[in-house]
Design a protein around this nucleic acid. Structure first.
Lengths: 136, 136
DNA sequence: CCGAATCCGGTTGGATACTG
DNA sequence: CAGTATCCAACCGGATTCGG
């Protein structure tokens, strides 16, 4: 397991990482990638339709995110040169295969979130009540 | 699936998110959390030992990361008040349970990374060869 | 040994305006 | 419709310094 996560540089600075999990997390972990992938899961969508569904994403971020995802082969971009040009985005096979482990993670998150929320609240309250941290 | 990922605000600004998956990704997706969790998986470690293993993490980031993880109940912090105080960090049961879906994701990443790498390289080269993007 | 606090540069990402 | 370009604020994270 030490071989999998080894010697990462910080977030995107030195991306000379041979670490696959950090690689995928750097892509997936950013603010919008996962959200976009999930929105695309039911079926292909055009740019503005996608924008409407995600709805508080800026058009810049959607654009950037889509290019990243396309670069990694997770989504495909198809241009139909009609009157107003039409562009459709869709999950590739790779993108769909990613949804499986991500789904597992989502399930974990859903299941454990209540606990985490409570733990977090308790932690915060404890810290608030005695600002003189008795930790050391 | 639309209920799971809904209406996220940007990264950490408005964390009024009821979205569990984004919640967990915000924790896991940052530069050091996962790396720390993996390093802690074999067994409990003290602060500086942990620091040595992760080795290019700054002490500040290790400190911050550990506090976040403790807040969420993923790691525990145990202080033994000996001569020089001794502090041990360990995965909680929750932390260990997280390693399962994360492991699946890591496996996916390992398996698909060669493909992604090639796809990425091809994409970059194509973009480099004709800077006049024929996209629209 | 185990941290917390401060300073500060680089990056992320939103708003806006413009192109085709 | 489908983006790109520019400007700018907020944030992340490294280096350093100080305390228990």
């Amino acid at each position: 397991m030490d071989a999998v996560v080894s010697r990462i540089s910080s977030r995107r600075r030195l991306h000379a990482h041979a670490c696959p999990i950090r690689d995928v997390l750097d892509r997936i972990g950013d603010a919008w990638s996962l959200l976009t992938l999930f929105t695309l899961e039911p079926g292909p969508l055009r740019f503005n339709e996608l924008r409407r569904r995600v709805d508080d994403i800026s058009q810049r971020m959607l654009s950037v995110t889509l290019r990243q995802l396309e670069r990694d082969g997770l989504v495909s971009r198809t241009v139909t040169p009609t009157k107003p040009p039409q562009v459709e985005y869709a999950l590739t096979e790779l993108g769909q295969s990613l949804m499986v482990p991500v789904g597992a993670l989502a399930a974990w998150a859903s299941a454990k979130q209540p606990f985490i929320q409570r733990h977090r609240a308790a932690y915060d309250q404890a810290a608030e009540e005695n600002p003189d941290d008795p930790s050391l």
